[in-house]
């Protein structure tokens, strides 16, 4: 029975390329939101407004976890497709 990973490994390189690009874009979006959260948290904490700090941390943590499990969908995970090396048959048959 075919699995998700096997199907992904057998996909056309164009499709794999599009997929990995989409995954990276989502990760960049996550990181951008996290930078904004850290900036806001720091600014508010320095202005003695600590209320926003905990929700911002939880949001940032959630985004990190999303990004972490997102890596599972990266093509080429698990077993890489084995490249069959050329065998020099002239050495085999004497």
């Amino acid at each position: 029975m075919s699995t998700f990973r096997e199907g992904q490994d057998q996909a056309h390189p164009n499709k794999t390329s599009t997929l990995i690009l989409a995954l990276i874009l989502v990760l960049i979006l996550n990181v951008s939101i996290q930078i904004w959260l850290l900036y806001t948290t720091l600014n508010n904490a320095l202005a003695q407004h600590a209320d926003i700090a905990l929700p911002a941390f939880l949001a940032s943590l959630a985004l990190f976890l999303v990004g972490f499990f997102w890596l599972y969908y990266l093509p080429g995970g698990g077993k890489q497709r084995k490249i069959v090396k050329n065998v020099n048959f002239s050495d085999t048959y004497h």
Binding site: L27, Q34, L37, L38, A53, F57, S60, L61, L63, F64
Partner: peptide
């Protein structure tokens, strides 16, 4: 991403 989450947690 993990570093940013850690930093926000520290703050």
């Amino acid at each position: 991403s993990g570093g940013l989450a850690t930093g926000t947690g520290y703050v």
